[in-house]
Design a protein around this nucleic acid. Structure first.
Lengths: 138, 138
DNA sequence: CAAACATATGCCGATAACGGCATTCGTCAA
DNA sequence: TTGACGAATGCCGTTATCGGCATATGTTTG
């Protein structure tokens, strides 16, 4: 028998944790320093239990730590686990710098070819290369 | 009446797209160059429809583009949308470099204080600071 | 046109995600 | 101990996700 499963063993990894906008917002807020749950909930415009649940997820992947302070529980950032994400995306850096796009490369080639041939035949007063943007999505 | 919604308007942003291990894997595979769906499906150990669906998600957030090549459809990487993620995580860099941890900061302070006081009283041959790494997850 | 091949889409089942509410748990103070 | 307060947990309803299968769509070739 087949046992289908949703999102395999994904749950509870860092990529998943930061896929939630509210959780990202929490991390951003925590850059300013420790904060109790209620305060965070308020800034996020959600209920306290809601915030607590997000904080749980963040805690479980190690992005956040908590310490007791009286009856409060102060959460603070622990960004170390964000590093793998940074590095993973960094592995694609050359693809967004270096002409990632065949089209770009192609256009560059055309330009070069033009320049070369221009040196040989100097006629053709017409405007060459008429803003190639093909109407771009409408 | 209340209309609860799951993951708000999250769906279909880049963070969500790369939250899926298989989709990350696809991106990695595509670094090597264009690839048809079937090939990807095979390397991922999943069915062709499965791969197609992941590719759809990636396409919708702009991480991937496709071009027709005969009866095949070749997918290629377009990593530009990965940049925002890289930059967002980069915004936390100082928290994992610079003593993110109060404990570390504390230890640093201790070291400094020691050094200072050492200049005044030169005793205490004991080892100071015993590798504070707190057992790291087991 | 039909057959063969490559992809996309639709449907389904199982499960996870999110948010709110009610409630429990834990801690401090009177 | 009781009351007040902060935070966590449980439950529920709604929606999304993921995977597989069957099927549709599209393209090339005979």
């Amino acid at each position: 028998m087949f046992v289908p499963m949703a999102r395999a063993a994904t749950t509870s990894d860092v990529f998943n944790a930061i896929a939630e906008p509210q959780r990202r917002e929490i991390l951003v807020l925590l850059r300013a320093g420790e904060r109790p749950v209620t305060e965070l909930a308020q800034e996020l415009g959600m209920t306290q239990p809601g915030a607590s649940k997000h904080l749980r997820v963040l805690r479980e992947v190690g992005l956040v730590r908590d310490r007791k302070a009286g009856k409060q529980r102060l959460y603070r950032l622990d960004a170390r686990e964000l590093r793998p994400v940074h590095e993973w995306t960094g592995g694609f850096e050359r693809f967004w710098n270096e002409s990632f796009d065949r089209l770009d490369a192609y256009v560059q080639d055309l330009k070069q070819a033009r320049r070369r041939s221009d040196r040989w035949q100097r006629q053709d007063g017409k405007r060459r290369r008429s803003q190639r943007r093909p109407t771009a999505r409408s």
